[in-house]
């Protein structure tokens, strides 16, 4: 009896673990992507870099051997508006009209882990920022 009750509760938890509570997290990922895209549209490299995950910001800075905000100005990241958001675990994919962004949920909230990405079939996207 004890095992049945615990089993039922765990079964509900198992099904819930995959689907519960994603809508709130989708809006968090969407807001982070929108902030990033808005910074791109107004040419605000500092704000765009603040929206990037630390690894992506460092990678961009080191690839140009410049501070991130200056390196971002040299990159050709397209702006635009969010068209769709998919959240899976602590990762999200955001599609805009001209780009695909990959986001990660870090301790400081959602950050853009990769941008300016090109699809290559089932192989990983090739991204200019954050690859």
């Amino acid at each position: 009896m004890l095992r049945n009750g615990v089993g039922t509760a765990l079964g509900v938890l198992l099904l819930c673990a995959a689907g519960c509570g994603t809508s709130g997290r989708e809006s968090g990922a969407e807001a982070a992507a929108s902030d990033f895209l808005a910074a791109v549209d107004r040419g605000d490299g500092a704000a765009a870099c603040a929206a990037l995950a630390p690894d992506a910001a460092e990678g961009l800075a080191s690839s140009e051997d410049l501070p991130c905000a200056e390196a971002f100005a040299k990159a050709d990241v397209p702006g635009g508006a969010v068209e769709s958001v998919e959240v899976w675990g602590d990762r999200a994919q955001v599609r805009t009209g001209a780009d695909v962004l990959f986001l990660a949920e870090l301790d400081g909230g959602w950050k853009v882990a990769a941008a300016e990405c090109e699809a290559r079939g089932d192989r990983p996207h090739e991204c200019e920022v954050g690859a």
Binding site: G11, A18, E86, G89, A92, Q93, D122, P124, H125
Partner: peptide, 26 residues
């Protein structure tokens, strides 16, 4: 059947998170 269904639902979620971390489509 229910456990296998739960495996497929939860497994897809975990798999997609892994794919997104590797810059692949879910």
């Amino acid at each position: 059947a229910l456990s296998w269904l739960a495996q497929s639902v939860a497994g897809r979620s975990a798999y997609n998170a892994e794919r997104l971390a590797q810059l692949q489509d879910p």
